[in-house]
């Protein structure tokens, strides 16, 4: 039976059924591993992040990488055309992906992408928002919660001033951005385990 890896970080959702699970993961890791590394490099550039303890840096990244990847790859989901662009650059329709077994995550990603893209953030705003997303990730593994909270407050204040400066007539933009955080958390809670654990379905 045909196997599918319905994740836009792959070249294609179709996987060669003759390949072993491990080889399929190996191929997938060629794009997933650099994507995770990029999240780490991004985190390193967040002012104050490196001042956290190494343990807390790792904890935040473990908890927040999925959410940062969702924000980063939101642009692959075209809500108007109802297509997803895979790494090869080819677009696949929602119907095609559903026929391969894509389910709630696909719907949630379209919904999230549509709302985020509607805010028309520029690169600087998106970058600062992504930083807020990372430091707002689950804190159950954090040792020094106060320092993470202080960093989160600083970044949220910075995001607020940037949005109010750039979007003076759209006061709701900042509120809508903060409301994305629980959306990302529920996406994370519902779907990250399967993706981050790389369960390849035979």
């Amino acid at each position: 039976s045909r196997m599918h890896l319905v994740c836009p970080m792959s070249m294609s959702p179709y996987v060669d059924p003759r390949k072993s699970g491990h080889n399929i993961w190996l191929e997938f890791s060629m794009s997933f591993t650099p994507a995770v590394r990029e999240v780490v490099e991004f985190a390193k550039r967040i002012p104050g992040f490196r001042d956290l303890s190494q343990h807390d840096q790792v904890s935040l990244l473990k908890a927040g990488t999925f959410e940062v990847l969702v924000v980063r790859f939101a642009s692959l989901f075209d809500a108007k055309e109802r297509t997803v662009t895979f790494l090869s650059g080819r677009k696949y329709s929602v119907e095609e992906l559903r026929s391969m077994g894509a389910g709630d995550l696909l719907n949630s990603m379209f919904d999230f992408s549509h709302k985020l893209n509607a805010l028309n953030l520029n690169e600087e705003e998106m970058s600062l928002f992504t930083a807020v997303v990372l430091v707002s990730a689950d804190r159950s593994g954090i040792e020094n919660v106060n320092s993470v909270e202080a960093l989160q407050e600083t970044l949220i204040r910075a995001l607020r001033s940037l949005i109010l400066k750039n979007h003076p007539n759209e006061a709701a933009t900042f509120t809508k951005l903060l409301l994305k955080l629980p959306d990302l958390r529920s996406l994370n809670n519902m779907h990250s385990e399967q993706l981050l654990a790389f369960k390849v379905h035979p």
């Binding site: 591993t33 995770v36 390193k44 190494q54 790792v58 990488t65 654990a197 790389f198």
Partner: peptide, 27 residues
């Protein structure tokens, strides 16, 4: 390249990238 069937894979990648001594055999 660590075993994909567990979250250890993600933590492994994060630690190496964070500590800056990432030896990426896949490249």
């Amino acid at each position: 390249v660590s075993d994909p069937a567990s979250n250890l894979g993600l933590e492994d990648i994060i630690r190496k990238a964070l500590m800056g001594n990432f030896e990426d055999k896949t490249e």
